[in-house]
Each structure stands twice: as structure tokens, then as C-alpha cells.
Design a protein around this nucleic acid. Structure first.
Lengths: 202, 202
DNA sequence: CGCGACGTTGATTTGCCTCAACGATTGTGG
DNA sequence: CCACAATCGTTGAGGCAAATCAACGTCGCG
């Protein structure tokens, strides 16, 4: 992975959403810098300020929060072409509660707040892009919230599998449990039950 | 309540966030129209398209979702100076899953999608404003989500009371239960327990 | 090889739900 | 203006989904 290719990937992503001139594309590309994050290293750590917003070029991150019983709750898994960062901490200078840890050796394009503000000044169209991206993120989180309060663990599991086929091959089962908001033991039991029921049927 | 005063209230709200010229203020104000929503009437109804975004000028709305067991889950209560609407449905033309019902006779400034796009074209600064508002909303929902998955009903209740003092005087108890994600019976029992524990202490 | 990470299984507990009944308050139509 | 219904909150008995605590097998890796 090199910076040029990574920047091209970001521009391709942006071009799917809004129209940029050649010059604007260059300005955007140059604002971002490529970082490598080794497996198990953190891109974002709770109780520190989130100084960088990231665009995942390759690899996988798990974004999670640690509760007061030291249990980890996965908010989302970030793959290629996902954004990673804590907006509240990034713009408002307060420490984040989020962690983002690489699940494998990963590459990420980053930008700091000063560069971001400069970029918004240079390419005002981006305000619109990030408004729309944030709206999509909000809408996805709202759905997740409703699923969490109105469906049981089994229904949430089925929904995850349906919406994100193949995720079980990508992340270990105890982290899927963490995403679902249950303990690994409960997920293990649940899957056994599902298997048993499917055996009876089929 | 009249439209002129309502528009002034909106402009005051916006002026706290960004700088607008006199002319821009006028453009924004004129883009919004005042609606009255009578007690128990709906500003937004599930399975319809959300054609309007609203800014609450006076009164109160409960914004909720109905699950497949016909249970209602309150997402938030919208008071003066809150925004109401479903962004996903508003911009992407799909039916919403949200309801927004007036809890008392209420007034709301509304704008439809076409007017909104025209407004963004006329006053591009608003892209930034709404980006920032959406980011705040996202950050608040993220906190709520974490509280929901990592705290029990009692902790969620204490948090609500702390963060929104006086809410118990504003909305009936069974709707607070719905916000907390528990049944009215459970909240009633919980409050009794809390009272008993406080009696022993004090 | 040996250790740590991961998944499984069992026994027990618990927080909240479910169903049911009932009193108090609100509000509404005759 | 009252009577009756609807809404709201409370209380009780029993049930269930998932947590908790504990033990154990397997696999991959340093």
C-alpha cells in the first residue's frame, strides 16, 4: 500500500457521492496522509482526544466502548471505505469514550482538525458531503438502536447475518457477541439452538 | 403565536451557531412556514414519507417508533428549539418508521425538501450548520445507545433525571418508561424501591 | 512444548416482562 | 353538571431471556 494509491481510493469513493473538479480532487487527496496501524494497535483510544479522522483504505478495525464493569461493547466494525473517528471529540476537544483497534495490519488515511477546517475552506462542497455522510450514519445508528430495544438477541443476530453476510468469517465469535450486546456464552448457546431447530426442519 | 415571531425565534437560534447577513437571515426565515399541530395530532407518521423537516417553536412532541408487538419506544421528546423529522425519509424518499405526536397544542416551523434544497443553494453556509447539528445529534444518540446496552433500567432512569431535570413534570410516567425501554409497571416498581432506599438512608 | 485465546457446556440467579386486578384521576358527552 | 369511560399509576404472582460463575476441550502460536 502506498499513499498515492490510497488517495486515489478516497477520491474514487468521493466521486461516487459528489462532483469535484480536477483541482479540488487534488486538494482533497493531498489533505490526507497514509498511516499504517499494526494488528492490535489502536487508531483511537478512550480518554484521549480524537485528533484524527480516518478513512480505512485496507484492513479492519473494531470500534468499541468499555463500560464501568470493563466489558467491551462493539459499536461497529470498520472495513475498507469506512470512516473511523469520534466526531464529538474531534470537533469539540473533549476526550473520547471510543476505541478503534486494528484487527489485522491496516492502512488508514488520516486528517487532523486544522487540516480539515482548511479543507472545508478550500473545498466548501465537502460540507455537503460530510453532512450527508453524517446523516446516513445517524440513520443507521437509529435503526440499530431500535433493533436493540425492540428485538431479542436471536433476532438481532439474524439481522446482522442477513445485513452483513460473511461477517462470521471475518471477526471472531466473541466479538460478534459484543456487537450484539450479549455474552459469548449466550451467543454460543443461541447458535446451538438455531442449529438444532434447523436440523429438525431440514 | 404568529409566523413572524416564530421565524424570529428560528433566526435567533441560528445566530447562536453561525453568522448570517441580514439578507441571508431573511431568506432563511421566509423558507419556513408555521404550522399548528393540535394535541394528539401527528406531525410525522410511520409508513408515510417524511415530507417536512420541523423546528419546534412551542409545545412538545414525542418522537417514537412502534415495534412489531405494537409497543411504542420513545426516541426523544422534542421541546422548544428542537428539530423534528426523519432525515433518511426526507432525503431518500422512503417511508419513515418514526412518529411525532404533539403532547399539547404545538407550533412548528416547517420546510419541504424542495424548499430545503433551494435554501442550501441560496445560503450555502447552512450546509455547515446542518452538518454540525447532525454531528451533535449523532453524538447524543451514540451516548444513549451505550447507556442502553451497558446500564440497567435504574441507572438509565437516574441519568435521565440528572440530564433532564423536571422532565417528570412535563411528560407522564408511562412515557418516561417508554423512553427508558421498560414497561410502566417496571418503572413504578423501580421508583418505589428507590424511595424505600432513600427513606432508610435519610 | 506450553501458554493464552477462544469456544462450549452446565447449574444457578436475576432483571425485567407478562398477565391480571384494582384505585385514582381526568375528561367528556348527554 | 354529573355519570361514566378512558387513562394513568400501583401492586401481585409467575415466567423467561440472558447474565453469572465455573469447568473444560481445542487450537494456534511464540
Amino acid at each position: 500500500m502506498n499513499e498515492e494509491i490510497a488517495r486515489k481510493q478516497l477520491i474514487d469513493y468521493i466521486n461516487q457521492k459528489i462532483q469535484l473538479t480536477q483541482e479540488e480532487q487534488l486538494t482533497v487527496a493531498n489533505a490526507y496522509h497514509l498511516h499504517q496501524v499494526k494488528k492490535k494497535d489502536f487508531f483511537l483510544r478512550e480518554d484521549t482526544q480524537c485528533k484524527l479522522q480516518g478513512f480505512v483504505v485496507g484492513g479492519t478495525f473494531r470500534v468499541f466502548y468499555t463500560d464501568k464493569k470493563s466489558l467491551e461493547h462493539v459499536l461497529y466494525f470498520a472495513f475498507k471505505d469506512w470512516w473511523v473517528g469520534d466526531i464529538a471529540s474531534f470537533y469539540d476537544d473533549n476526550p473520547t469514550k471510543l476505541n478503534a483497534q486494528a484487527m489485522e495490519d491496516s492502512w488508514i488515511l488520516v486528517i487532523d482538525r486544522e487540516e480539515m477546517e482548511q479543507l472545508f475552506a478550500d473545498v466548501p462542497k465537502l460540507e455537503r458531503l460530510f453532512r450527508i455522510i453524517t446523516q446516513r450514519t445517524l440513520s443507521v445508528l437509529q435503526k440499530r438502536f431500535f433493533l436493540t430495544v425492540s428485538a431479542n438477541a436471536e433476532e438481532r443476530y439474524e439481522e446482522l447475518i442477513k445485513r452483513h453476510a460473511g461477517i462470521e468469517q471475518l471477526v471472531p465469535q466473541h466479538q460478534i457477541a459484543s456487537y450484539l450486546g450479549i455474552l459469548p456464552e449466550s451467543l454460543s448457546r443461541m447458535k446451538k439452538q438455531l442449529m438444532d431447530r434447523k436440523m429438525k426442519k431440514g
